[in-house]
Design a binder for these strands. Structure first.
Length: 1132
RNA sequence: AGGCUAGUGGCACAGCCUGGUCAGCGCGCACGGCUGAUAACCGUGAGGUCCUGGGUUCGAAUCCCAGCUAGCCUACCA
């Protein structure tokens, strides 16, 4: 099948559809994998995106990076495993399903809908989303095992996570404990740190009086006043659970007497930390300034002022006494909501420590009063305090965030909703000192965005701190790209690792395989379905596939050694465990071994920087627990896709760009290339439509080069297989520029390969971009344009075809991992059916480059030559001397021999591109005229009166034009003797040294020059009759070509041409009629002058005459003030 | 509040590790040119406090310190 001429324009839609269909119809993906099956292995693990139903630009970038690397690895001969993964469990889907089914609470799920139905719906929903997202990823051309992905809802996958849990249990890392943890009151479940988002918002900020039970100041006038500790809080709803107040032993505390100016109660004593007093109460002394008349004002004294400023100090409050925090330990206060919360009195009666003060290290400087409200049931710190001092962990709130009966007056209501009421009560009881609000960041549930609350509940944990050291060692072992991702960011996060809350009070997740005995408290952790069946007391009726999900697994009872029936705890696992075990669960280890042995551990994973706390961490933890190591050896951490202003894309800002929008407009390949090109992978990427347009332009240009190539190659039926470069039968000869483009494309392959390997995708794509634009399109194609016109199988023309073909051939290989569709499309035409060893798809080809074809010296010489040619163009531009007009010679002047060598080697290129008959080289430009002049600065002081001799001499030298000779002699001998008569008429010889003479240089007429990086280019623009004749002929040619194009003639179509002009112009161009005929493919060329002109322009007077310019076309031109009428007739 | 990363003409980026060459490239803009790749290309020009402020140095976009802005991560602001 011969090479076909390509479509004129780059139609990505058509191409991408066609190529994807080709891959699908012919199982190209499978064939590619099979082809590499015996190669060295490169194992990769896909981070499972959550089955939200829609991919976004972030996940797009993620998959494009992975796909590019993996395609490259495949071409490099590696055997790959590229299983896609899906994260299917968890709250987000539960929420969606709740929404779909109109469910408002957990109670409804359990009582109305039923867990089985609910879980079924979740599964169905997850699978639908997975399918939708798979289609989106496929449309990007991402190659993964889409038909056999790993899914966290897969029972066999889930078993592996059970096994990991069992490992944790065996290592004594699993514990159930009452702790204060973050809960989502809407989802009614515990949340892990990784599930908390943060948001800015307004909360109350109140300063509350906690009245002292016994006054501390018992003497003096203040003894009668009320005395209170001042406590600050932003969570009024935690006050019903307040059991103590913490202070810091080392701080100093003020007893402050305030009055009605600051307090609604009038005079009272407040205890405040010394460093907080001014923040809370304002400055102690206010200075009021008044303008008053100056009693000493003297109207006659200009310096005297009429008014003066009088200052009055006002003391706002008195500090009666200051004591150390340690002196305030153990004092009792009255709970501010004692009447509203009767339980508080009960508690106080039970434990004398309640409602007293303690020391707490967490009491620090900053906001507040130095006294910290402590509710062990609500705050992690408070909880620790409570445990340390033996306070009860009192929590009058249920998991739904509602007060229970222990909250007295507030019972039954949602905690945060009670804030206003509690504030009101405090005000009416006279305990509110200051009632304001604060803007701060607080935690919210990652899915439903409900503000989280801290509650003491009983949950299951993995004791991460116990394996922290090993985890940190693994962090150091793993290769991170960029380095700081591991060394800084991730290391810090692991360093601060806390216990991992793994239990969730939900339905759609992996049931925690822990069975407990209600009687003896024994615990069993089940590691597999088989084990469960073995241990089960009753026959299990559920299918394996159903058994591992709730509610079926809940029904399984296990026999305890004590004889009782053990039941499963009702919780499901944190979804971060789900994905954390992906390394082996996706391989069904330990139930199956073969895939595990082959692929574990993984050479490479790649996710966004949000996964520091997420997947990077959960895999590390689960890996160390299960296998004593991180499951990965190398991690690329990529950035986020931001909007064009660098702001995060979010629905609320309305700045979200959908991937399909981009694909619709530019296609998948342009998007892929853009994503890899626009930013360093680890930086955030600003998505800018304009830049996408630039990339699209590059695609069009590449396509144009392809069209250009195939146009001529198809015309000549070019076949690269028939090219013989060397030996006696050689039919192709390569010019230096041909070797250059081949060298360049091999250099490119080397650089791109290296940079994809080290994940510098931006370096790779930017090099490709520059190569296509600069080297291939703007330079090489320009250089060979003339050669493609030669008829017959000229070895020189074939050299150009061969080189262009090679450049394109290599380029589509280089681009295949990045732009798989475009490469495949071009491969289909350019290679398949042409080259005997062609594969079915370009993606089955090897990644190759030939180091031996790289000639760095040649590349560098071409760089110089390009500069020289550009300089020559600049010089011509200055002289307004058109490039189309030939010049007799140019001279390249450079000091560096290398540059001149390059000029000689690439002389033909320069001749052609500079449109010059001759290229001269020199280390100095000889045609410069130098005008010598005396250096008055050196000569003046020395010669004094004899200066006249010298001046006269140089004036004469200028007139004679002997400057060059003087310069030459000075350079040769270092001196020059000037003779002349002095004022007295005596002949004198004066010796001039090199320093005594200065020069002005002058370019001869007709010479223009321009600088380039290594020297100067001098262009001789002197016109001879021959040059003029050729120049004018070229003007005519250009216009005829223009007309051919207007006529939409085929490139190879023949024409007849008539040129009618004045006699003088006719004479000039006639000499070049062969050239003209050749260039415009004219079978006949008639040039004449005079009235014959009318013959061809006279179309008669018929009104309906419509000129069919595709057959015959006449046009009047003006060339250098000559009227020229050209007629072109198409010849069949 | 702490950590990491980024901040370079109107826009997007390179340079920074390893201090010194008029701070480079692309897009955009203005002017001119070219025209068988032509929705392409070439030339010239305007346009920059290299985020701000200190410091080190003979010399800082580059190294150090502090601050501002943005992204991500973290945090018990009680």
């Amino acid at each position: 099948m011969p090479l076909k001429e390509a479509d004129k324009s780059y139609d990505f839609k058509k191409i991408e559809e066609k190529v994807q269909k080709f891959w699908a119809d012919n199982d190209i993906y499978d064939k590619t994998n099979t082809l590499r099956a015996d190669g060295p292995q490169y194992s990769f693990l896909d981070g499972p995106p959550y089955c939200s139903g829609k991919i976004h630009l972030g996940t797009t970038w993620n998959k494009v990076i992975k796909d590019t690397l993996l395609r490259y690895k495949s071409m490099s001969g590696f055997s790959l495993r590229r299983q896609a993964g899906w994260d299917t469990h968890g709250l987000p889907i539960e929420h969606k399903v709740e929404e779909l089914m109109g469910i408002k609470s957990k109670q409804e799920i359990e009582e109305k809908v039923g867990i089985a139905n609910f879980v079924d719906k979740c599964k169905e929903f997850a699978m639908e989303n997975k399918d939708a997202m798979t289609a989106q990823f496929k449309s990007l051309g991402v190659w993964m095992d889409w038909d056999e992905p790993y899914m966290t809802l897969d029972p066999k996958y889930m078993e592996s996570s059970w096994w990991t849990l069992k490992r944790a249990f065996q290592k004594d890392l699993l514990t159930k404990d009452q702790r204060v943890i973050s809960c989502c009151p809407h989802c009614e479940t515990a949340l892990a740190a990784a599930e908390i988002d943060y948001t800015e918002g307004e909360d109350p900020s109140i300063y509350v009086r906690f009245p002292l039970k016994e006054k501390l100041i018992t003497e003096g006038p203040e003894a009668d006043l009320d005395q209170s500790i001042l406590v600050w809080t932003t969570t009024p709803w935690t006050l019903p659970a307040n059991l103590a107040v913490c202070l810091n032993n080392d701080f100093e505390y003020d007893f402050v007497k305030v009055d009605e100016r600051l307090s609604d109660k009038g005079e009272e004593i407040l205890l405040i930390g010394k460093d907080f007093t001014e923040d809370v109460l304002g400055p102690q002394v206010l200075i009021h300034k008044y303008k008053v008349d100056n009693p000493d004002y003297d109207p006659d004294d200009k310096k005297s002022k009429k008014h003066m400023t009088k200052e009055e100090k006002e003391v706002m409050y008195d500090i009666i006494k200051t004591v150390k925090g340690s002196e305030l330990l153990g004092i009792s206060y009255v709970h501010p909501l004692l009447e509203e919360v009767p339980k508080q009195a009960e508690l106080e009666a039970e434990n004398e420590l309640i409602h007293t003060t303690f020391h707490g290290d967490h009491v620090v400087l900053g906001e507040g009063t130095g006294f910290v409200h402590t509710a062990p049931g609500h705050g992690p710190d408070d909880f620790e305090m409570g445990k340390e001092y033996g306070l009860p962990i009192h929590c009058p709130v249920d998991e739904a965030g509602c007060f229970n009966e222990d909250a007295g007056k507030y019972a039954g209501n949602y905690t945060r909703d009670e804030n206003p009421l509690i504030i009101e009560d405090l005000i009416s009881k006279g305990l509110m000192f200051k009632n304001t609000t604060i803007n701060h960041r607080y935690g919210v549930c990652w899915r439903c965005k409900t503000p989280i609350i801290y509650l003491s509940t009983s949950q299951w944990f993995i004791k991460v701190p116990e394996i922290k050291e090993q985890m940190l060692k693994e962090v150091d072992r793993v290769e991170w790209v960029p380095g700081w991702a591991g060394a800084g960011r991730f290391h810090d996060w692991v360093e601060n690792a806390k216990d991992w809350t793994i239990s969730r009070q939900r339905y759609w997740g992996i049931p925690i395989p822990i069975w407990t005995c209600p009687d003896c408290g024994e615990i069993k952790v089940i590691g597999s379905v088989d084990e469960l069946k073995e241990e089960s007391i009753y026959e299990i009726s559920a299918e394996d596939s159903e058994l591992v999900h709730r509610p079926y697994v809940d029904e399984v009872k296990i026999k305890c050694d004590c004889g009782c029936e053990m039941s499963r705890i009702p919780d499901v696992l944190d979804v971060w465990i789900d994905s954390g075990v992906a390394g082996w669960a996706s391989l069904y280890y330990p139930k199956e071994n073969d895939k595990f042995d082959k692929w574990y551990p993984y050479d490479f994973i790649c996710e966004g920087h949000d996964q520091t706390r997420g997947w990077f961490y959960s895999q590390l933890g689960a890996g160390v627990i299960s296998m004593e190591r991180a499951p990965y050896n190398k991690v690329l951490m990529h950035g986020f896709v931001l909007d064009e202003n660098g702001k995060k894309m979010s629905k609320s800002l309305g700045n979200v760009v959908q991937p399909e929008e981009v694909i619709e407009k530019y296609g998948a390949d342009v998007l892929r290339f853009y994503l890899l090109w626009a930013a360093k992978p680890w930086d955030d990427l600003k998505f800018v439509w304009d830049e996408l347009n630039n990339v699209n332009k590059m695609f069009n240009i590449l396509w144009n080069v392809y069209v250009f190539s195939t146009t001529y190659m198809a015309l000549d039926d070019f076949n690269p297989e028939k090219c013989i470069l060397e030996g006696p039968d050689a039919n192709v000869s390569l010019r230096s520029e041909d070797k250059w483009i081949i060298s360049r494309v091999n250099s490119l392959a080397k650089l791109v390969g290296e940079n994809i390997d080290r994940n510098y995708f931006h370096v790779a794509t930017r090099a490709i971009y520059d190569f296509i634009l600069d080297d291939l399109s703007r330079w090489y194609v320009r250089l060979i344009r003339g050669r493609t016109w030669v008829e017959s199988d000229d070895p020189d023309k074939l050299g150009a075809y061969y080189s262009l073909y090679t450049a394109l051939y290599n380029l589509i290989h280089i681009m295949a991992p990045i732009t798989p569709h475009l490469s495949e499309e071009i491969y289909e035409n350019l290679v398949k059916g042409i080259k005997e060893d062609a594969m079915e798809s370009i993606h089955m080809e090897d990644w190759v480059f030939n180091e031996e074809l790289i000639d760095k010296e040649l590349e560098s010489k071409m760089d110089d030559v390009r500069e020289i040619i550009e300089a020559s163009a600049r010089a011509r531009d200055v002289a307004r001397y058109k490039l189309r007009w030939p010049v007799s010679d140019i001279t390249v002047v450079a000091h560096d021999e290398k540059v001149l060598e390059g000029v000689k080697l690439l002389e033909d290129v320069i001749k052609d591109q500079c449109n010059t008959k001759e290229v001269k080289t020199a280390t100095e430009f000889e045609n410069l005229t130098f005008i010598a002049k005396p250096n008055l600065k050196t000569l003046g002081p020395r010669l004094k009166g004899d200066m006249g001799i010298v001046q006269k001499f140089f004036a004469q030298a200028k007139a004679d034009g002997t400057g060059n000779e003087i310069k030459a002699e000075l350079e040769a001998n270092g001196k020059y003797i000037v003779s002349g008569e002095d004022r007295e008429g005596n002949v004198k010889d004066i010796e001039l040294s090199v320093d005594d003479v200065l020069y002005d240089s002058e370019l001869p007429d007709d010479i223009v020059s321009a600088e380039f990086n290594g020297g100067n280019v001098f262009v001789n623009t002197k016109i001879t009759p021959e040059l003029q004749s050729e120049a004018m002929a070229r003007e005519v040619i250009r216009r005829i070509q223009d007309m051919r194009k207007d006529m939409d003639l085929d490139v190879e179509a023949h024409v007849g041409v008539m040129v009618n002009t004045n006699a003088e112009f006719k004479e000039i161009i006639e000499k070049q009629s062969d050239l003209i005929s050749d260039e415009v493919r004219a079978k006949t060329l008639i040039i004449f002058d005079g009235e014959a002109c009318d013959i061809c322009t006279d179309k008669g007077n018929e009104e309906n005459y419509v000129e069919d310019i595709s057959v015959e076309y006449s046009k009047e031109w003006e060339i250098e003030s000559n009227k020229v009428i050209i007629s072109v007739v198409k010849i069949e």
